[in-house]
Design a protein around this nucleic acid. Sequence first.
DNA 1: TATTGTTATACTCTATAACTATA
DNA 2: TATAGTTATAGAGTATAACAATA
Lengths: 154, 154
Amino acid sequence: MARPPDKTLDRGMLPSLLGYALRRTQSAVFADFAATFAKAGEALTPGEFGLLVLVERNAGLSQMALARALGIDRSTLVPILNRLQARGLLVRRGSPTDGRAHALGLTPHGETALATFSKLVKAHEKRVASSLSAAETQTLIALLEKVRAAARSV
Amino acid sequence: MARPPDKTLDRGMLPSLLGYALRRTQSAVFADFAATFAKAGEALTPGEFGLLVLVERNAGLSQMALARALGIDRSTLVPILNRLQARGLLVRRGSPTDGRAHALGLTPHGETALATFSKLVKAHEKRVASSLSAAETQTLIALLEKVRAAARSV
DNA sequence: TATTGTTATACTCTATAACTATA
DNA sequence: TATAGTTATAGAGTATAACAATA
């Protein structure tokens, strides 16, 4: 990990930019996520967690559907799934309805691991939201969604 | 660019997570930033813009100081500076006070380019913040800073 | 000894293009 | 023809370790 940012530099207009605040906050939250998992002897990225949740809640979905839901290319997904499969968390089964497609699902170990991961994520969320009231957290998420909708329609 | 996310999937607990909203919003804002620059025939990432602003506002700073301000390792900075220098935006001069260090600065072309970039960034910011009132934008930035402070102290 | 910048190396995320098997 | 998954390849961002020059 790199050293903490130097606060003495002149940052000009940057602190007033939404994108700048977004990037810096996301970076800090990501680091907290990683630290939370590392402290528990686990290793998982936010993206991997999101993927596992999607597979659990939509068992049998195809790689194409998953890639679309994640907003990434299908080729990008392949090595990610390979890694999670090698860890025994996830399986690719043949689709019963389409010979080209895979039906994705969690393994039993993946299910129990995801339960553990979810607890860690909740602890992490509680910590990063600790400086906000429940109402502020809801406001923040709602404002982020509004910004996302506005940015998406370019 | 990948296709838009599929809205029909069950996302479980994800929409209530701050980190999830943060990642998705940042991704959309980043795409808007890239699209804004592409439409103007320019190419720059948010990180490169931030770096150029830092160099302009703190002319003569060293690579170590810049890396610290950006929160990245000094070795990570080298290829980034190489690229910006190859584009004629930035120069490494010898530090007058420390024979080991470089004094970073913008070239005249870098100064004029940064002025153009800043206009594009303002247009981009205006668009992504278009769905929020001025007060909401201030609230959003303030809440993000509070979260960042809480996440940083792990 | 410690610091600055560089290089070598490695890993992840991202994409495009081409291939295969199926539809 | 079109789609699902894979592979090959490439570029950017990130890091650690080791090195030369300098402090």
